[in-house]
């Protein structure tokens, strides 16, 4: 049997299936070249000392990992990243879940308007959002500072204060992310059979119990997806306000793993450190996902 015939046999490659593979070729090539190969190359780069310009890459084994994990700065960045994730999850996963439930079950009027209006910022550049909110939340002369002034409140100088800066940059990011997550969750909740909800309502089951005992378990697939998406994608969205407003400052107080990896690669040209940080980020995402699935599995088991 020739090699070609062997390949054909293992893949069950007849004329019909060959067309199937053929249709996938453009996507596969693009993902292979611009996603999978780069991933492997980043793993490779994490074992080398390089500045992106010099023709020589020096193999350093796991030294980049030792350096990155031995640097107190890295732990500050981990802490910041964790704080970003917690705030982003609260605003873009928990709140939209409740909103999606309320708009589907409680509110009977203006639903269409609410959906359009809440989804709207998802279509606008986050650079626009960053600039708008930087002005609106300007602690000296911004409109909110003036309104706050009337009732004797002050806006902290958030671009310069640790903690506050992360909160405000997360809020700016949420402005864009909130509506998208809301629509996905609404779709899932709206797809739940009305009969179950109606009969619970006829039995006078309180709304919060309907939410926890019917809606949450029955929309958990989307729930998990939005949870993961919030961690992975909003953390990347945060890059924009960080880059535009603070450049990671003051003194790395608003940097996170994504921005720090960018900073190492394209500001100080330490590709080894950048690649190492990216691989660590990816590993953390994988651990988070794993823990979450474990937790959810247990939750679903308990439900039954």
């Amino acid at each position: 049997m020739s090699a070609l015939a062997a390949v054909r046999k293992t893949l069950h490659l007849n004329r019909e299936n060959a067309i199937g593979y053929g249709l996938l070729i453009p996507s596969i090539i693009i993902f292979a070249v611009f996603t999978f190969w780069p991933f492997l190359y980043t793993v490779y780069l994490s074992f080398f000392d390089w500045n992106m310009i010099s023709p020589e890459k020096e193999f350093v084994g796991i030294r980049n990992y030792m350096e990155v994990l031995g640097d107190p700065r890295t732990y500050q960045i981990f802490g910041n990243t964790f704080l970003y994730i917690v705030i982003l999850l609260a605003i873009n996963c928990v709140v939209p879940y409740i909103f999606a439930f309320v708009i589907d079950i409680v509110l009977k009027r203006w639903n269409g308007f609410y959906k359009s209006a809440l989804f709207l910022p998802a279509f606008i550049s986050l650079v626009v959002g960053s600039i708008l909110f930087t002005w609106i939340l300007n602690p000296v002369s911004g409109p909110l500072a003036i309104v706050f002034g009337w009732i004797g409140l002050e806006i902290p100088n958030w671009t310069k204060s640790e903690g506050w800066v992360i909160l405000v940059l997360s809020l700016i990011t949420s402005w864009k992310v909130f509506g998208y997550n809301f629509i996905l969750l609404y779709a899932s909740i709206n797809g739940i059979s009305r009969e179950i909800i109606e009969s619970a309502r006829l039995d006078n089951v309180p709304l919060w119990r309907i939410f926890f005992q019917i809606i949450l378990p029955m929309s958990s697939a989307t729930g998990i997806y939005v949870f993961i998406l919030t961690i992975v994608q909003s953390l990347q969205y945060v890059f924009t306000p960080v880059k535009v407003v603070t450049q990671g400052g003051p003194d790395y107080a608003s940097s996170n793993l994504i921005y720090h990896a960018y900073h190492e690669a394209f500001v100080v040209y330490r590709t080894g450190h950048s690649a190492t940080l990216s691989i660590i980020t990816m590993a953390l995402f994988l651990i988070l996902l794993f823990l979450y699935f474990k937790f959810v599995d247990r939750g679903i088991y308990y439900e039954n």
């Binding site: 996938l24 780069p38 991933f39 780069l45 994504i258 990816m282």
Partner: peptide, 30 residues
């Protein structure tokens, strides 16, 4: 519309790229 071998794996592989952080592909693509 096709039933070829490895279809599920390929689908999973492509969709899972949604969860790859941007920085992982940034330097090589540059």
């Amino acid at each position: 519309y096709f039933q070829f071998k490895g279809k599920e794996v390929l689908y999973f592989l492509l969709i899972s790229t949604i969860f790859i952080p941007f920085t992982v592909t940034m330097i090589p693509n540059y």
